[in-house]
């Protein structure tokens, strides 16, 4: 349809409180629908156009930059309480395009598209020449470190056997020679002490996810594994046809403060 008078967009300052409200609603939506990786936080609003919407309301067309936090996607900690990943830890940014509807004073997300990318090695080196960079998640040393950490965790665990959900981050540390990994796990119907073949174990209907951090250090004649896992409160059974980690939708999983998280460990083996 041809553009007529009054059909143009409204320009708004990127730091206008109304723009910020729309951006925060967009980032909340993003974090509520993550299936893997880490929660993100708002870093900068790049562009905003506000379009009139018929019959009522306005649509905020926005470009937003985000930064990765240290909270895993399924961690119930509110994103506002999560620390931003530091440059020295090899930060990751998100580039997002959103359409956010404002109607009756309420914001709701109509569309979202985000891509994330790690900081360049060159930039990390500028702030920290000796800091380890992010390693490919399929690196054999990474895979081995995760397997060893998961085995160590299950060996010390008197409850359910936990299986790997995803490896979310890894770094190869030069001195002492070690591999640092972060990964997500989920409880199964097997008892950790009695597992013979993990392939026969199934995820519980009431999903219970956990998040682990581990360092595998090479030593003369062997290796040391230190692993710490935090198990999150269980998530309610989802309707049939829903597979994999479920989004932490507010209505489906009430946000709990970190103190309410069930702590398993820390187990240091």
């Amino acid at each position: 349809a041809p553009h007529g008078p009054g059909l143009g967009y409204r320009e708004l300052n990127c730091d206008d409180p109304e723009t910020e409200q729309a951006a925060l609603a967009a980032v909340d939506y993003l974090n509520s629908n993550l299936l893997q990786g880490y929660k993100h936080t708002l870093n900068q609003i790049d562009k905003v156009k506000v379009w009139p919407r018929r019959p009522t309301g306005e649509v905020f067309e926005m470009e937003i930059d985000t930064l990765e936090t240290t909270c895993y996607a399924l961690d119930p900690t509110p994103a506002a309480n999560c620390s931003v990943r530091k440059l020295e830890q090899h930060a990751v940014e998100g580039d997002c395009d959103f359409h956010v509807l404002k109607q009756d004073g309420q914001f709701s997300v109509l569309s979202a598209k985000c891509d994330s990318s790690p900081d360049s090695a060159e930039d990390v080196r500028k702030v920290c020449p000796d800091c380890p960079l992010l390693a490919p998640l399929n690196d054999t040393r990474v895979v081995h470190a995760v397997e060893a950490a998961l085995a160590a965790f299950n060996n010390r665990n008197n409850g359910s056997y936990y299986q790997l959900v995803e490896v979310s981050r890894a770094q190869l540390v030069p001195l002492p020679v070690s591999t640092y990994v972060e990964f997500a796990v989920a409880a199964t119907d097997c008892v950790a002490k009695e597992v013979i073949d993990p392939a026969n174990c199934n995820l519980l209907a009431e999903k219970q996810y956990g998040f682990c951090k581990s360092t595998l250090t090479q030593k003369v004649g062997g290796e040391d594994v230190a692993v710490t896992c935090t198990v999150f409160p269980t998530q309610p059974v989802l309707p049939d046809g829903t597979n994999g980690p479920s989004p932490m939708v507010a209505s489906a999983a009430p946000a709990s403060p970190p103190a309410a998280a069930v702590m398993v460990g820390p187990l240091v083996v």
Binding site: N13, C14, D15, T41, N43, Q44, D46, L67, L87, A91
Partner: peptide, 27 residues
Amino acid sequence: MVAQPGVAVAAGPVVRPCPGRIRHFKI
């Protein structure tokens, strides 16, 4: 005081509405 009609006077620094402020750091 001599005024030159027709010469625009700068009204201060130009305000750039976008992009907005950086909350943490830029990478």
